[in-house]
Amino acid sequence: MAGVREIRRRIRSVSNMQQITKAMKMVAAAKLRRAQEKVVASRPYAQQIQNVLARLAQVQAQVQTEEAHPLLTKRPVKKIGYVLITADAGLCGGYNSNLIRLARGLVEEQAEQEVALLTVGRKGSDYFVRRQVEILSRFTGLGDSPDFNQARKIASEIIGLYTAGELDEVYLIYSKFISALTQQPTVAKLLPIEPSTEKAEGEYIFDPSPEQLLEQLLPSYIESQVFSALLESKASEMGARMTAMDSATENAKEMIDKLTLAMNRARQAAITTEISEIVGGAAALE
C-alpha cells in the first residue's frame, strides 16, 4: 500500500486537473451559447438563398437553350475534393477523430478516382499530412467565431479549383450540430450544385437575365453553404468540448473520492500497526 504522503500528493494533482477541466467546461459552455446563436442567425439567409436558387434553376431548366452554368454542370468524375472541417485544438472528446475517421473512410473507398483534400482546421491537416493524401489547401486559425469573410476565402478557393477543372466534384465533411450532447459527422455535396426542384408558383420577372443572376448567385450560394458548415462545426466542437470536459471533471471527482478512501485506509493501517507495535513491545517487557 502506498504511503499516506504519496496518496495525498496524488489527490492534490488530480484536484488541480479537475479545476482546469472545470474551467474549460465553463468556457466551452459560454462559447457554445454564442456559436449556437450564430447558427440560428445564419439560417434565414441560407434558406432564402436556396429558395432563390431553386427559382432560377427552374427557369434555366425550362429554357434549356444554352449551356448550363459551369457550377451546375455535371462532368465525368476524375478527381474528387473533400473539404474537411475540423478544429484547431484537441481536448474535445471524439469530435476530431470522428470527422477524420469519416474522411479516411471516404478517401480509401475511392479506388478509381483520384482524391484530394482541402482542410480547414489544424487537426485534420495534421493527420492527413502524414499519410499519402494530397492536400490542395489548408486553412487554420479560424478562431472561435468564424466570419463570412473566412467562408468567402474558402469558397473562392473551392470554386477556383472546380472551374479550373482540377476537381470534378466537391464534398464538405463537417459536423452537424444537433445538441450539446450530439454531433453528427456529415458529408454534403457542394459541387456541382444540385438545386432543389421545389416548384415555384407564378411567372417571375428577372432583372438582369437569369443567366447573369446565376452568375452572381452561385458563388454566393457556395459561400453560404461553407459558412453554415463552419458555424455548425464550431458549435459542435464547443458542444463536444463541453461534454468531454464535463466527464473529465466527473472522473476526477471519482478518482479523488477513491484516493481519499485509500488515504484514510492507509492512515488507519499505519496507526493500527503502531499501536500493535507498542502493545507487542509492552507485552514483551512483562
Partner: peptide
C-alpha cells in the same frame, strides 16, 4: 404592395 414576382440582382 402587390408587385409581380421578381428576382433581381
Amino acid at each position: 404592395p402587390n408587385h409581380a414576382p421578381l428576382v433581381a440582382g
